[in-house]
Nucleic acid binder design. Sequence first.
DNA 1: CGCGAGGATTGAAATGTTTCAAATAGTTGG
DNA 2: CCAACTATTTGAAACATTTCAATCCTCGCG
Lengths: 351, 351
Amino acid sequence: MTDIHKPAERRRLSMVDVAAHAGVSVGTVSNVLNRPELVAKPTLRRVRASIKALGFVPNAPARQLRGGASRSVGVMVRDIGNPFFTEVLPGIETRLSQEELLLVLCSSSDSVEKEAYYLQILEQHRVPGILITPAGDDISHLVELRRRGIGMVLLDRPGADSQLCAVAVDNVRGGELAGAHLLSLGHRRIGFLNGPSIVRQCADRRKGLDNAVRAAGLDPGEVVTEVTLPALTPREGEAALERLSLRGGPTALFCVNDTVALGALRGLEQRGVGVPHDMAVMGYDDVEFAAALSPSLTSIRQPKHQLGHAAAELLLTDSRGDAGHWHQEIVFQPELIIRASTGASLSRPGR
Amino acid sequence: MTDIHKPAERRRLSMVDVAAHAGVSVGTVSNVLNRPELVAKPTLRRVRASIKALGFVPNAPARQLRGGASRSVGVMVRDIGNPFFTEVLPGIETRLSQEELLLVLCSSSDSVEKEAYYLQILEQHRVPGILITPAGDDISHLVELRRRGIGMVLLDRPGADSQLCAVAVDNVRGGELAGAHLLSLGHRRIGFLNGPSIVRQCADRRKGLDNAVRAAGLDPGEVVTEVTLPALTPREGEAALERLSLRGGPTALFCVNDTVALGALRGLEQRGVGVPHDMAVMGYDDVEFAAALSPSLTSIRQPKHQLGHAAAELLLTDSRGDAGHWHQEIVFQPELIIRASTGASLSRPGR
DNA sequence: CGCGAGGATTGAAATGTTTCAAATAGTTGG
DNA sequence: CCAACTATTTGAAACATTTCAATCCTCGCG
């Protein structure tokens, strides 16, 4: 007969209480929880009954204090609002939940300081690993964390020369695909709505675009007009149009991601600029909604779910500290998805 | 001169090491960290120098063991892939990060078992609070957790009779708005692409739709044809069209959310059904991309950022266990956003 | 010169686990 | 009936903190 008289017990139950209730030692209770095969059947039953009767819930921090690393991994993104991350997250979550790992989500909001702050907290929590899309260009602090024993995998960012594992999509190649596509349609003046060039992905896509222009025997300086947005949101995408002379300016717009393209599309419609006739537009990422936009958006597809899954996988091996594992880099290839917004069957851009 | 000879020290540093290095007791080190005002200036300097020199990082689990509750709150969503949650998350994150709280993200994938599993882990971690969109209809287990001292706030779900705080948008009202809009355009046969009715939001929106139909003096059984989707994804939205006799069937489609509407739009286009002329379509949530779809999507707007922010706020007061705080419910009002997909200026649905 | 006040520091208990060597009980073979 | 095992169980140390009563100084004042 378990009978709780106290209306609201102050102290939470511990294994000591369970042990007393079941008439065994704490060591045995611990064994029931962690190595039940060592415990005799009847004892097992009895202890389990006590646990249930008392409503005992093990204390994870205490466990961890003794045991070592935590069961949560950190995932740091630059902006949770970005649908790209939303589509990568399920891939990560799927893999982590298989390992019964908790996912601690941090958003650096593109601030190096906030990133540093969160990293510090994660280290204090003794997480076994961190999956991160760094806010800044310098990743030496990440290498340092890795050296201190925290698994570290760069997400959507090449590890390059550094000692870090990385999972990325080839952004230079993506930029090339986009550039080549627009050039093949006859465009010779391309507006590039880009993010800040300290963001690696942005810089790489620009590089790819330039490569494509040069490959066509043209001068990037002549062909490409870049507008740098402070943030990759629809609002900024729309606002960026102001800084671009629409008439007599570019005949095509390459947006550094679909979110920006969405804003651009909205803005162009308001200004009565027809897409793709007056202006071709393409995005990047091929997020879920790209195909359903008006007009449907040509984009560069990234295997987002796979990206997340592979990153999680790599993090698992990295944080296990498997011998024989040094840094590894997985690079996925982007894919050009042609849709209406670039009017692929266009003879020559108007005017 | 701090000189580390060991190539890779096994044991991590603890406050004991810092104390030794600085020539003080551990108690003092602790004071430096937690109540620096109690410590004499020179000592403070010395200890801080030692911390830096040794690279000491406090151990959060140990801290918590002594101190009590953790600095992480749980956020349980039904599906991280759903853009609705993506747009709610920033609101939550903003508020939590102000309190220097970590956000542990759990996705129940609409499984009651997975939800229960995660809740158990969160309880073990002694989180001070949980923000949750429950997977099932029964929330008694949540009330129980609350009783055990874990702050609990229902997200996007009315707390109703129960003892829980809740932040929600009035889904019945949303359904009414949608229904009234379609009816006012002359539609008399409405297809409703709904989710499983155990999901509260789905059931409520249906109820609202029926209300609107009745308010117009009509019989919901005649007007509404519901198709129940197993999951609220574009894919399922598209597939659902098969189960609806498009010709001679409904003249309008109400989709339980924008993600489903996106799929429906895609499917209708493939089948050559013109929107809004042959079929009016509306969604729910008014997510970021709704305005830019082809055609732009009429939807029911929910104040998503506010929703997240308010939920986090409520959770903070609830987990502080402030006296004078009992359960509180915040209900936001949805708003009808009319766009092209319902062809608002339509005389009468064709055929 | 002695005393008390008050600031600074210390030492040890307490937190809830896990782990492991040692103790105990139970069983089998001789 | 004992020895030698084996299967269980136990008790205490260890983990890294925080907290708090107790101690130690150092001044200032009478």
